[in-house]
């Protein structure tokens, strides 16, 4: 995933790339707003909650908000959040918006997507 993102960014002009790298390094200090959408307490949901909590504790201690939404109980949120698959973790802030679908077991992928891992 990280490779792909890199490849996409390559055509960007040099000046932008410098700015991008700067932003990338700064992002480590940014505040995170995360929403986890689950549908009932399925095994997938439980795993996803465990995983997201672990990642938050380990990588963004003190600078994250995590909201867990059960769309069984609040189905209108599914439309608002444009949710198709569950579990879905939505990174609302910082921009850009990212969605991680699945039980969040692939930690590396998530960390890269959350810009918590510097690309090599």
């Amino acid at each position: 995933m990280s490779k792909k993102t890199n490849a996409e960014n390559e055509p960007v002009q040099d000046a932008n790339k410098v700015a991008f790298d700067l932003a990338l390094s700064e992002s480590n200090q940014e505040h995170y707003v995360l929403k986890l959408y689950i549908a009932g307490m399925t095994p997938n949901s439980q795993r996803a909650i465990e995983n997201v909590q672990k990642i938050c504790e380990e990588h963004m201690q003190g600078r994250f908000e995590l909201e867990i939404i059960d769309i069984y109980q609040q189905p209108n949120f599914a439309k608002e959040g444009n949710i198709v698959a569950v579990p879905t973790l939505v990174k609302a802030l910082p921009q850009p918006l990212r969605k991680f679908i699945g039980d969040l077991s692939q930690t590396e992928k998530i960390l890269a997507g959350l810009d918590l891992r510097k690309k090599v």
């Binding site: 997938n44 599914a78 579990p87 969605k99 699945g102 692939q106 998530i110």
Partner: peptide, 23 residues
């Protein structure tokens, strides 16, 4: 669904869509 902003990170299903339609 914007493929750019979606990453697959494990097992999932489309219950979200079902709930939206059902709702």
């Amino acid at each position: 669904l914007e493929p750019r902003e979606i990453a697959e990170t494990g097992e999932y299903d489309l219950e979200g869509l079902f709930i939206r339609i059902g709702y």
